[in-house]
């Protein structure tokens, strides 16, 4: 159905009818087109994801500049994740903000924060298909374990570090 007719039709229907029509149209989209759309929806790989934790605005901007220097003309291949809200603006590398511990603890269970951050970082890494991850700044220990692939529940204590073997 030509898009113009579809839009004109849908604007004349009640909400319920419009919703039904939209789902019919979605279901009728050819499979090849749906597959092409799914492929196009894949975010290009990010070559380097940098987790900059507990840093201030000036430090975060320094990290961004170094990332851009490494990334050369491809800032879109660089990603910075931080709990600092100094946003980068257009034309810079990708930026993801995660609410800081203090803000979380004012509203939610403090024990859940590390789990929340670990989940968010893992979601971010997947959605940007990050090839390499580096962590800078004051990374909480549970988050380090999570980055190393060890699963830790929200209330669970991180495993104790083993003492070095006796000489």
């Amino acid at each position: 159905m030509p898009r113009r007719i579809y839009l004109a039709l849908i604007s004349r229907l009640s909400r319920k009818q419009a919703k039904r029509l939209q789902s019919i149209v979605m279901a009728l989209r050819p499979r090849a087109r749906r597959r092409a759309a799914a492929l196009a929806a894949l975010t290009p790989e990010v070559h380097l994801m940098c987790i900059a934790w507990g840093v201030d605005r000036a430090e975060l901007e320094r990290i961004r500049d170094r990332m851009l220097a490494i990334g050369g003309r491809r800032p879109e291949r660089m990603l910075v994740v931080s709990d600092c809200d100094a946003l980068f603006g257009k034309g810079s590398c990708h930026f993801e903000y995660i609410p800081a511990r203090a803000e979380w603890e004012q509203r939610f269970d403090p024990a859940d924060y590390d789990g929340f951050v670990a989940r968010r970082i893992s979601e971010i890494a997947v959605s940007f298909r990050a090839r390499r991850v580096v962590a800078l700044g004051e990374i909480p220990e549970p988050l380090l374990y999570s980055l190393a692939g060890k699963k830790i529940g929200p209330a669970e204590e991180p495993p104790a570090l083993e003492p070095p073997p006796a000489a």
């Binding site: 759309a37 196009a40 929806a41 894949l42 975010t43 290009p44 800032p75 879109e76 809200d85 946003l87 257009k90 034309g91 990708h94 930026f95 993801e96 903000y97 609410p99 803000e103 004012q106 509203r107 989940r119 968010r120 979601e123 959605s127």
Partner: peptide, 27 residues
């Protein structure tokens, strides 16, 4: 206010950006 942030579309295609927005909102 407690805030979450999702950057506006910049270097990605509309499909890529919308795909990430959908995933992020559901999470």
């Amino acid at each position: 206010f407690y805030a979450e942030y999702f950057a506006s579309r910049d270097s990605e295609t509309a499909d890529q950006w919308n795909g990430r927005l959908r995933t992020r909102l559901l999470a």
